[in-house]
């Protein structure tokens, strides 16, 4: 089963992509639900809101334990939560992917944009990316593979079965990022 963390944010948009791919999924609001998952998506939204919820509702340790066996996809706010280090302003994070991120790094909402890039890993056609008050990955650890870049910054990275996008693949009709995530989740459930 694939879960989408449903504290707040665009969890329903991820659900629509999973449905299009014919995958069963559930909204995750309780730590105990993690036991049944082979893949967990942390969606876009406000990282400060989600972080507070994760601390208040005892989600931090169960999530770290889950990460030892299950796949993870973090988009935008999800990327911020999974990072090793967060700046602008600094805030705690789960430290599950060896990257540093700067929040709201492109500016405010008026600086949000859509663009495309070629990912050597995903191949053609170019990947459409929706950036909304997006973070920038400022540092990538040695165990992290960069799958796509935009204007010289990594925007899609992978460390083992953990996948990070600073943009919103769930807001486009291109399902390749989710498909890659599902192969990682399948591999973990075998």
């Amino acid at each position: 089963m694939i879960g989408v963390l449903a504290i707040q944010g665009d969890f329903a948009a991820h659900g629509r992509v999973l449905e299009r791919l014919g995958v069963r999924w559930c909204e995750v609001r309780y730590p105990a639900q993690l036991d049944e998952l082979s893949g967990l998506i942390i969606p876009g939204g406000e990282s400060t809101t989600m972080l507070k919820f994760l601390f208040d509702e005892g989600f931090i340790d169960p999530l770290k334990q889950y990460a030892r066996r299950g796949a993870l996809l973090g988009t935008c706010a999800g990327a911020i939560l999974l990072a090793r280090e967060v700046t602008n302003p600094p805030q705690p994070s789960l430290n599950l992917v060896d990257i540093a991120v700067k929040r709201n790094a492109y500016g405010r909402q008026v600086d949000s944009f859509i663009d495309t890039t070629m990912s050597p890993v995903l191949g053609p056609p170019p990947l459409e990316m929706v950036f909304i008050r997006a973070p920038i990955i400022t540092h990538v650890g040695s165990g992290v593979e960069v799958l796509a870049e935009h204007r010289g910054h990594p925007v899609l990275v992978q460390q083992g079965s953990r996948l990070i996008a600073t943009f919103h693949p769930e807001l486009t009709s291109d399902t390749r990022v989710h498909e890659l995530f599902l192969t990682l989740a399948d591999r973990r459930s075998e």
């Binding site: 944010g9 939204g45 909402q109 859509i114 909304i132 008050r133």
Partner: peptide
């Protein structure tokens, strides 16, 4: 069309919140 998608996109990010 892109500008409108980005605008509705931010609204999507605020779902489930206060």
């Amino acid at each position: 069309e892109d500008t409108y998608r980005v605008k509705v996109g931010l609204a999507e990010m605020l779902k489930g919140g206060v």
